[in-house]
Write a protein that binds this DNA or RNA. Structure first.
Lengths: 221, 221
DNA sequence: CTCTTGATTAACCGTACGGTCAAACCATCT
DNA sequence: AGATGGTTTGACCGTACGGTTAATCAAGAG
């Protein structure tokens, strides 16, 4: 759509990367820490080291920029969930693996979940937009198909009598809840448990050990 | 602090209740659906059927009003958690009871969790404020004391060998995660599972049956 | 009745904010 | 060198928003 002259050069002139990318990164930071409504175009421009008008040049207006960032952040938070449902590994391997990878990723972006959930609650229509975007990222991974595949795997184990009956919906909801919520409520948990950032990291580390066992144990018949 | 003339009369003149209360209720609605930064003082005034200047008369400015509402909403979302830790009942009774009551309450205010988590992530200092307020509501229910009491109860059961070892922190975090998250992510869950509001209510109803068993099962040694 | 006092309003103010525009910039091509 | 076209900027605009003020209203006290 928009041709980037800097892309042709090996060493870009600008401080780092081309302007559009710097704007996206700056907007990412600002939107996540202030929320869409609380973010200021000027603050994003400053953070990107760029004139405010340039934001409107690349992204027509604030709401388009906000949409782009929301998709980026929410995609980052939720895309990994697909791994659970799509992989063919047995639950006993899959669950610990996904929990470990997920907690690790979230620990790197601890404020993303709070931002995403806040935005979702103020703009419910973004729920639909988000799963459309996720479907576009991973070919043919419609939510319905994903849930059906997971349900088949669960049903087989249920028939074997090796896990208790559970629907794929409840299974996924539980798994995601246990992983994401502690980050979304991080400031509250830190206050309740009297933790600083290092203490919270330790709490998450402990969680990485405890959660797989807790979850698999819950499935045991 | 501020004397209310209408309070003296048996039948208040105003449409319903005194102005301060109507403002609080209106602010509650507006802040929850728009978020603090997205809420407009004018919209709150309209919703309360009152002049905008009156908001500044009762609450000096927007941020004080926002603080009041946040405490109210967040208190409503989290105060019930205390019941788990403070009650003396056995886990097998306590857990299903708290899950049932909690899901029922949240189903009545489904957008509160998203609002609270969003606000927490943009104003982390409110975590501390919130637990102070919760401590004020329930006499001598400091988080530390609550966690210690719960830990004693858990330790006894662990020593008996009737549940697996778990810290009070992880126990509470898991319980709260499983209850609150589905509401905070309601728009997303509805999109993924192709549910309307009635379908979501049914999903929560199913959850009320499934969750106690899931949770207690996870504790089983 | 007047005086006082809290409650309520209409009108207003300053500015912060999202958005626009014409000019300047700069690499590339002829 | 000049022309071209995407990129970047400073200056500007309209308004929506939070907040203030002076006036009005209602009701009790004297």
């Amino acid at each position: 759509m928009v041709k980037k002259s800097a892309a042709r050069k090996a060493a870009p002139i600008q401080p780092d990367g081309d302007a559009e990318q710097r704007i996206l990164d700056a907007a990412h930071k600002v939107f996540v820490r202030r929320g869409t409504a609380g973010a200021r175009m000027q603050e994003i421009a400053d953070e990107a080291g760029v004139n405010k008008a340039l934001l409107h040049y690349y992204f027509r207006n604030k709401s388009r920029l906000a949409d782009a960032i929301f998709q980026r952040v929410a995609g980052g938070v939720f895309s990994r969930i697909m791994d659970v449902a799509l992989s063919d590994a047995e639950l006993e391997e899959k669950v610990p693996h996904i929990i470990g990878a997920y907690l690790e990723q979230l620990a790197r972006t601890p404020y993303a979940p709070g931002y995403v959930l806040g935005e979702l609650s103020h703009h419910p229509e973004r729920g639909k937009q988000l799963i459309d975007a996720l479907g576009r990222m991973r070919e043919g991974a419609s939510p319905r198909a994903v849930l059906e595949k997971l349900q088949r795997q669960l049903d087989q184990r249920i028939a074997e009598g090796t896990i208790k009956p559970i629907s794929a919906q409840q299974f996924l909801t539980n798994l995601v809840s246990l992983c994401i919520f502690p980050f979304a409520a991080k400031p509250l948990l830190c206050a309740v448990m009297e933790l600083d950032d290092a203490g919270f990291a330790a709490f998450i580390d402990e969680r990485r050990r405890v959660l797989p066992e807790f979850f698999l144990n819950a499935l045991r018949p």
